[in-house]
C-alpha cells in the first residue's frame, strides 16, 4: 500500500527526515515512536503534503502512484487520512456542514456522476458515527473545532476518519493531551475502524496508547531515521528502558 524509500525532507532548509524506509501493507497497524524532535510529526506532515515541508530525496509510492507528486486534497481523496496532533480551529465553519462537504468531495471523486448526499441521509450517517466515537451531538452545530476541549478535538478527528473511511490513516499523536477516559474513547473509536482492508500508522510518544490499540509493528525514530523496528514487545522495552539505549549510538 505504502512504500517509503530513503526519504529525506526538511523545513525551511533544515533537514529533519534523513533517510526513512518503511513499507506498510493492507491490514497492518504500525506504531512509530520516538523522542521529541526525532521527526515523527514531520514524517506525517510530509505524507499528508504540507506545503511548508520540502522533500529533498527519496520516493514515496502509494498504491503504485508517486505520492509526492500529489496535492494534499488528491492524497485525501485517494484514501489517505491525517489525524492532526493539533486540530485546527475554524470559526465560522459549521462542523456538520464541513463533514458533509468532505463526505461529498470523496463521494464525487469516487464517482463523478454520483449525486451529493441528501442532508437528511447524511445526518443519519453522522449520528451513527458520532455514537461510534462517543461524541456528544451538540458538537454537530458548533464551529469546526472552535473552543473544543483537547479531547473533543481528537474525537472530532476520529469522527472525520470514520466518515471518510480512509485506506491509510496516519494518526499524529492522537493520544497526547488526553485524560484516561478520552484516551479510552478515542482508541476504542480507532479500534472499531481498523479492518483488514485498511492500514493505520500511529505516531505516538507514549506506550500508553498501545495498551488499547495493538500494533503489528513498532518502529523507533531518532534523529530523522528509523533506528529500530520490531513487534509489540519493542514498545514495552522502550517503556522500561527509555529511548537512550537506541539514540545514544546515533549521536
Amino acid at each position: 500500500m505504502l512504500e517509503i524509500k530513503d526519504l529525506h525532507a526538511g523545513f525551511e532548509g533544515t533537514e529533519i527526515i534523513k533517510g526513512v524506509d518503511l513499507t506498510i501493507k493492507k491490514g497492518e497497524v504500525h506504531a512509530i515512536m520516538g523522542p521529541n524532535g526525532s521527526g515523527k510529526s514531520t514524517l506525517s506532515k510530509v505524507l499528508a503534503g504540507h506545503p511548508d515541508y520540502e522533500v529533498t530525496g527519496g520516493t514515496v509510492t502509494y498504491e503504485g502512484k508517486n505520492l509526492l507528486d500529489m496535492e494534499p486534497e488528491a492524497r485525501a481523496l485517494e484514501g489517505i487520512f491525517m489525524g492532526f496532533q493539533y486540530p485546527v480551529e475554524i470559526p465560522g465553519v459549521n462542523n456538520s456542514e464541513f463533514l458533509r462537504m468532505a463526505y461529498n468531495a470523496r463521494l464525487l471523486y469516487k464517482d463523478p456522476d454520483a449525486e451529493e448526499i441528501d442532508p437528511l441521509d447524511f445526518e443519519e450517517i453522522l449520528d451513527a458515527k458520532m455514537k461510534l466515537v462517543e461524541m456528544d451531538h451538540k458538537y454537530k452545530e458548533r464551529f469546526l473545532n472552535d473552543g473544543f476541549s483537547g479531547g473533543e478535538k481528537k474525537k472530532n478527528e476520529i469522527l472525520q476518519m470514520a466518515i471518510l473511511e480512509p485506506k491509510l490513516a496516519i494518526l499524529d499523536e492522537t493520544d497526547s493531551g488526553l485524560d484516561i477516559d478520552a484516551l479510552k474513547a478515542v482508541s476504542q473509536g480507532i479500534n472499531r475502524l481498523i479492518s483488514g482492508e485498511n492500514a493505520v500508522i500511529l505516531i505516538t510518544h507514549y506506550q500508553r496508547l498501545l495498551e488499547y490499540i495493538q500494533p503489528h509493528f513498532v518502529h523507533v525514530m531518532s534523529a530523522g531515521k528509523i533506528v529500530k523496528s520490531g513487534e509489540k514487545d519493542l514498545a514495552l522495552q522502550l517503556e522500561a528502558q527509555g529511548y537512550d539505549w537506541l539514540t545514544a549510538p546515533a549521536t
Binding site: 499528508a48 475554524i90 471518510l164
Partner: peptide, 24 residues
C-alpha cells in the same frame, strides 16, 4: 495556511477551501 491545509487534507480543493474560509 494551517486552516487551508487542514481542509485540503479532508479532500477539499485549494480553491474550495479558500472560498469556504473566506465566506465563513
Amino acid at each position: 495556511g494551517d486552516q487551508l491545509f487542514y481542509l485540503q487534507t479532508r479532500g477539499l480543493s485549494r480553491e474550495a477551501a479558500r472560498s469556504l474560509l473566506t465566506t465563513s
